[in-house]
């Protein structure tokens, strides 16, 4: 049974998740006419920068997050940003889109100078998220659980983060049982995606270096969050 407090927690997280989305004018640009590889790259870095800002605003609204140690808040955001952004992109791409939109987005990503060996696992991940048909509250909670992963570099109060993450895991587990009664494995499948996200995270570090060698510049916020000089 989901308790009253847990229902309030789900509502707070879902409201924050829905309230903080990438501005329409940024996403609209992604669907406009074709650009060169260079312009695609600039557009994708603009979207990524906007995703980081959205991620920080969403995270600040996670009940309990702002009572964590300030340095740990920074360490959690830096450690989880790539994974939370992939998860958010996968959730956006798995939404019902007018026909042709997904192809335009995929084409734009393919033509942005990203190395092929990174593209395959990324699109496989997007597909594996799409197949889950998560509800909004499941997506918001899974993103929250990704952010509240205690074993990120430089996190000091491990236990405080773990306690917060446990709270969210307990709510998500109950929600999965309630919303997917025919699929007892559903919760485990969601957690399996977090493992896939970690693998993508490792690929991402290599991808950045391949981009850097083609002297692509990232925005100051992306340089900070991705530790790129």
């Amino acid at each position: 049974e989901i308790t009253k407090e847990q229902r309030a927690l789900i509502k707070a997280i879902l409201d924050a998740y829905n309230r903080h989305q990438i501005p329409q004018d940024v996403t609209k640009k992604l669907l406009q006419e074709q650009y060169s590889a260079e312009e695609n790259f600039l557009l994708l870095t603009e979207v990524a920068t906007s995703q980081v800002q959205v991620l920080v605003e969403f995270t600040k609204n996670i009940p309990g997050f702002l009572s964590l140690d300030r340095e740990d808040q920074i360490a959690l955001l830096k450690g989880s940003a790539v994974e939370a952004m992939f998860l958010r992109s996968a959730q956006v791409l798995s939404k019902k889109m007018p026909s042709g939109y997904t192809e335009v987005l995929e084409e734009r990503i393919r033509k942005s100078g990203m190395s092929e060996e990174f593209m395959t696992p990324m699109f496989n991940f997007y597909k594996s998220i799409g197949e889950l048909h998560m509800t909004q509250d499941e997506q918001a909670l899974l993103t929250t659980i990704t952010i509240l992963t205690p074993d990120r570099p430089y996190v000091k109060s491990h236990e405080a983060v773990e306690r917060l993450q446990e709270t969210m895991l307990d709510v998500l587990r109950k929600l999965c049982v309630l919303q997917h009664p025919q699929e007892p494995q559903y919760f485990a499948r969601l957690l399996g995606r977090l493992t896939e996200l970690r693998t993508l995270h490792h690929y991402h570090v290599e991808m950045l270096t391949s981009w850097k060698t083609n002297d692509h510049k990232f925005t100051p916020l992306l340089c900070e969050i991705w530790d790129v000089q």
């Binding site: 920080v56 605003e57 609204n61 702002l66 808040q73 920074i74 830096k78 900070e224 969050i225």
Partner: peptide, 16 residues
């Protein structure tokens, strides 16, 4: 040390 952009975003009032 460069002022952290992340810290600035974190310290900005929530729901901005």
């Amino acid at each position: 040390e460069e002022p952290s952009l992340l810290k600035k975003l974190l310290l900005a009032p929530a729901n901005s």
